[in-house]
């Protein structure tokens, strides 16, 4: 009897060990994707592909360059802010500290590679590739205050902080595929730019709700710090609603295809649902990731109905 039950027990142990191993590996993969900002690379590449589809641009190295720059800037930011993030995001801070030197070297190498690749598309592509890095220096690093006592990090200034991030990414997401294709900006490109700008602005303010106490402690002014959580939610509703009206107008003006307008509006509905959780959850890290993943929803709709 015991002989018969032994293999069953061993099998159960084996499954348990396997489950543990899978769970451990999944945990590590999740840490790698989330804490190293790799998921943001996927999101950024999806947005560039959306822009390329919307503007009917040929396939180029633009998504690769945007992905590399996204990785470089966000990882660089997390390495630089590992100390201040300890309060608001201790797990991420611990991960970044543990792999600090590797992440720092990888992000620097990613930026160097992105710049080299952008050279193939000419000076404009190089300038646009430089833009997020230059904005990061102005936005997040302590260089600006170090050159003059009256200057402050743009990250500390209300609306300017999210505006700079949104502007830099909107230019990069739209400008790079245009530069790589050698195409001129069009009215449709302007609409896509506005969409990227507003979308990135909202996605920047959602995680700020979770960071409000830490931000207030280090003097960073964000919407939740200045207006509180409930009013921030209402402001974000208003911004998203305005974007919806703008997209509908652009569609009726013939500036956007039905597939793109549908994709953006589907994405907006998704974002409104995410925004509804602002002030009603404490899992802001997950909420921020959910907000960012909207780009995949938009790309899926655009590809499903546009191609």
């Amino acid at each position: 009897m015991s002989n018969e039950s032994y293999p069953a027990s061993a099998s159960a142990d084996g499954i348990g060990r396997l489950q543990h191993a899978v769970s451990e590996r999944y945990g590590r993969l999740k840490d790698l994707l989330v804490y190293s900002s790799l998921y943001l690379v996927v999101v950024a590449v999806a947005e560039v592909l959306t822009a390329m589809v919307a503007l009917s641009l040929p396939l180029s190295l633009a998504p690769v360059v945007v992905g590399l720059v996204t990785f470089a800037v966000y990882v660089g930011d997390r390495v630089a802010d590992a100390d201040t993030d300890e309060l608001s995001n201790p797990d991420q801070s611990a991960f970044v500290r543990r792999h600090g030197r590797t992440l720092s070297t990888l992000s620097a190498a990613a930026y160097g590679l992105a710049l080299a690749l952008s050279l193939t598309a000419g000076p404009l592509a190089l300038a646009i590739t430089l833009l997020p890095g230059a904005f990061w220096v102005l936005y997040a690093s302590d260089w600006l205050p170090s050159v003059g006592a009256r200057l402050t990090r743009l990250k500390d200034v209300l609306l300017v902080n999210s505006g700079v991030v949104a502007g830099a990414w909107a230019v990069a997401l739209l400008g790079l595929p245009l530069a790589f294709a050698g195409a001129a900006p069009t009215a449709t490109a302007a609409v896509v730019f506005t969409y990227f700008f507003v979308d990135t602005f909202v996605n920047t303010e959602i995680p700020n709700v979770g960071d409000r106490h830490a931000d207030a402690a280090i003097g960073v002014s964000t919407l939740p710090v200045v207006f509180g959580v409930a009013r921030t939610r209402r402001i974000l509703y208003a911004v998203e609603a305005s974007l919806g009206v703008f997209v509908a107008w652009a569609f009726f003006e013939g500036l956007l295809s039905a597939a793109l307008a549908g994709g953006v509006l589907a994405g907006l509905a998704y974002t409104l649902a995410v925004t509804a959780f602002v002030g009603r959850t404490e899992a802001y890290s997950r909420l921020a990731i959910a907000g960012e993943l909207k780009a995949l929803v938009v790309l899926a709709v655009v590809l499903a109905f546009g191609v």
């Binding site: 660089g76 630089a80 720092s104 070297t105 992000s107 620097a108 160097g112 590679l113 170090s146």
Partner: peptide, 19 residues
């Protein structure tokens, strides 16, 4: 191209070492 990639990467690392 290699020169730009390597030089830029090293520049970023050096910049991060300030002050």
């Amino acid at each position: 191209f290699v020169s730009v990639a390597v030089g830029a990467a090293a520049a970023v690392l050096a910049w991060r070492e300030r002050p």
